[in-house]
Amino acid sequence: MTCHEFERHCSGAPPPASRAQRRMLRNYDPARPLDYCATCHIGESGGMRFSPHRQRDEQGRIRDDACFFCHTIRPEIPPDGRRRFDPKLRVDTSDLCLNCHRPHWDLSPRGHVDRPVTPRILDWMLRNERAGRAARPADEQRTRPAVLPLGRQAVTCYTCHNPHYPGLFPPGSELGARATNPSDRAAALRADWIELCSQCHNR
């Protein structure tokens, strides 16, 4: 429904039966088809398509239009890269990611996406985080993981994948965590995949 408008084709007087209107595209001008494409595929970096994962423009400024794809407000960019646990996401499940991306192959036959974590796994994740950095007193009170965030206490796409481009947050911070292995880094994993497994599974 982002591109297609159904309501006016199903109610009231039927629109003229032109080829363009049969497509039911919003505000489409058949005389200027490229203008319609440019609604999303704006001319950035040599004509690359728009991506909400590029959160800074060529001058290094934060792009609000990218933030608002996933957030209802532009969230703060904490200088220390620590998670504040209130990102104001439009949806806090994997549905947010699957609007654009297709699910990929999963190591687990039962899948990971939107599976609730057990109390045992949650406890292991929190203990791993406390042991893996110079903990602050407030960290001991945390009940949600910060490096591998959950959505409604379930694994989501963004638990393992970091949707923010490198450099938006300090490297190695909770919000800026990235894999070091080149192929895992290219997949935007928050850690090398073998380490991701041990962050949740104590075996």
Rank of each mutant, 00 (worst) to 15 (best):
R115Y: 01
T93P: 06
P149F: 07
A135F: 15
W105I: 01
N99I: 13
R83M: 09
R120C: 04
L107N: 04
P78I: 07
G81R: 12
I73V: 13
V117K: 09
N99V: 10
L148A: 13
D80N: 11
R110N: 08
P109Q: 12
P137A: 14
D106Q: 02
P145M: 15
S108Y: 02
W105L: 02
P79D: 11
P78N: 09
H104P: 03
I73P: 00
R110M: 06
P75I: 11
P109L: 09
M125D: 05
P137K: 13
W105H: 04
R74L: 06
T118D: 12
I121S: 08
P103K: 06
W124Q: 01
P116N: 03
D80G: 05
A135G: 14
L150S: 01
L89R: 03
V117W: 11
R115W: 01
D80T: 05
R74A: 05
A138R: 14
V91G: 03
F85A: 08
I77E: 12
P149N: 12
L107P: 01
N128P: 00
R120G: 04
P145N: 15
V147E: 15
H104Q: 13
A134M: 05
L96R: 02
M125E: 10
V113C: 04
G111H: 10
D95N: 12
D106N: 03
D139R: 11
M125S: 07
H104F: 10
A135W: 15
P119Q: 15
R136K: 14
K88M: 05
P79N: 09
G111E: 12
N99S: 13
D95E: 15
R127C: 06
E140C: 00
N99M: 14
D106V: 01
G111A: 12
L122R: 12
R142L: 15
I77R: 13
T143W: 10
V117R: 12
A135E: 15
P119N: 13
A135D: 15
G111T: 11
C97K: 06
R84G: 03
G132V: 14
P109K: 08
S108F: 01
F85W: 11
G111K: 12
P75A: 11
N128H: 13
L107R: 06
D86H: 04
H112M: 03
D86E: 09
A131K: 01
R127V: 05
A138L: 15
P119L: 15
I77Q: 09
P119H: 14
R82F: 06
R74F: 00
N99D: 10
D92I: 03
E129G: 05
D92A: 05
V91W: 06
R144T: 09
C100D: 03
D95P: 00
H101A: 02
T143A: 14
H104A: 09
E129A: 08
A146M: 15
S108A: 09
G81S: 12
R127P: 02
V117I: 14
R136D: 14
Q141P: 00
R136C: 11
